[in-house]
Write a protein that binds this DNA or RNA. Structure first.
Lengths: 244, 244
DNA sequence: ACCTGAACACCGTTCAAGT
DNA sequence: ACCTGAACACCGTTCAAGT
């Protein structure tokens, strides 16, 4: 046992990569780095070359673990949605009724969206694998959970599917808009923000001008809650209807 | 419908500018060509160089009329929304009550979305100029129309603004999902579609499998109508409430 | 086994130069 | 006045070659 190997062991114990033999890349680490990069620098700035650099590696190395940039973005979307596996507030099946079940699911998705405002539009806009895999619930796992849960709770097949449609378009509309105000796409990074955001001239738009105060208030959380309640009320009616 | 090699001859036959003195480019023509390109080839394939080529010109010429690619995409979004100026079914102010007014507006936006399924996601995902310019109603003109119309029909300022929020997130959720099934983003063009779309294995997802029939049915139009009715009912309640 | 250098085809954009 | 050639910096991706 040489001094060299002991040093390496110490690094390993500390969880750091040994300097002599760098810890190899892996898919998971690449995907996480991609999400980090999008969160901080925005999607348009995510480049294979820059992503490689942030991992201390040349861009070409990434292709050993990821087929290409498009597939990487798909993987990012999957990863974000699968984040909800680790969310103890999101259940895999109803425990206190389907309303509670859907409420937990909705808030779980919202938490992901708010945690990654710059990445969430990807979840909304990537072309789905199947036409019925509707964003933002675009994982077979969660769709299965949704349908199984509602079936168990007395929804007919048609009602469960209709509920799935309503639920997804509710989530997509609300969260995309909520997130787009919090931190948008950020195309080319805008510099020299001298404090004044330079709003458009409102002279020709008197109502917009008069209501600009109300328009700027942020009631996103309350609106989400309220619309969700309304949706659940509608689904309740659906549940009671006979199959068509 | 455009055969590039024939363009010059076609122009002559149509009595358009003679080939010797080519008609100069203009912003409008560039934007239209961009929309055409996106409609037929998808957004990712829209390139300054290709767009130039489709107009019989080198890419650099475009910069005389458009500051850059990002601004061009903004202009495309504007153009699409302004399309509704020419839609006689969309009114600039209420004539048969606010419900009819909003219904016409909603259907107008839906018509634009369905006419340009590959471009509509742009309307949804471009960062808005102001946080209260919510997609897909992202033009001051239409927001002013919306608020003025509802004011005239007895909505308080707060109620009109709340209605605006509900209306936009309804439109965004529904139309984005409807459009995404009709013709999605189309990242890298997929070739060799040998007929089988290769659906994911559903063995582990029994409910998805059992309901795959119902999941594949397209009730988009009916759902849009129904959700819109429900939204209008909610807005009706809003209209009757006192200002908070 | 894992990473890289060099190369290819393609981007957006600028600018001096052509007509 | 309008367009282009040439150039720059930067992409994604491949592959033979290095260690």
């Amino acid at each position: 046992m040489t001094d060299e190997t002991m040093d390496a062991d110490a690094d390993v114990v500390a969880g750091n990569p040994p300097p002599s033999a760098r810890v190899p890349l892996d898919r998971e680490r690449i995907i996480r780095a991609a999400i980090d990069h999008i969160d901080t620098a925005g999607l348009p700035s995510l480049t294979m070359r820059r992503l490689g650099a942030s991992l201390g590696v040349e861009a070409m190395s990434l292709y050993r673990y990821v087929p290409g940039r498009e597939d990487l973005l798909d993987a990012v979307v999957n990863h974000l949605i699968n984040t909800m596996y680790d969310d103890d507030d999101v259940l895999d099946m109803p425990q206190d009724g389907w309303q509670d079940f859907l409420q937990r699911l909705a808030h779980g998705v919202r938490r992901v969206a708010l945690a990654h405002p710059k990445a969430f539009p990807l979840v909304a806009s990537r072309p789905p694998e199947a036409p019925w895999l509707r964003p933002p619930l675009r994982s077979l796992h969660w769709v299965e959970s949704f349908l199984a849960g509602l079936s168990r709770e007395g929804f007919s097949d048609d009602a469960a599917v209709a509920a799935y449609r309503g639920f997804t378009s509710f989530l997509l509309g609300h969260l995309l808009l909520e997130v787009s105000t919090h931190g948008a796409d950020v195309g080319p990074l805008d510099v020299l923000d001298d404090g004044s955001q330079e709003p458009p001239k409102l002279d020709a738009y008197p109502h917009v001008a008069k209501m600009s105060g109300a328009l700027s208030e942020d009631h996103a959380a309350a609106e989400f809650e309220e619309s969700l309640e309304n949706l659940l009320d509608r689904l309740q009616l659906l549940r009671l209807e006979a199959d068509s």
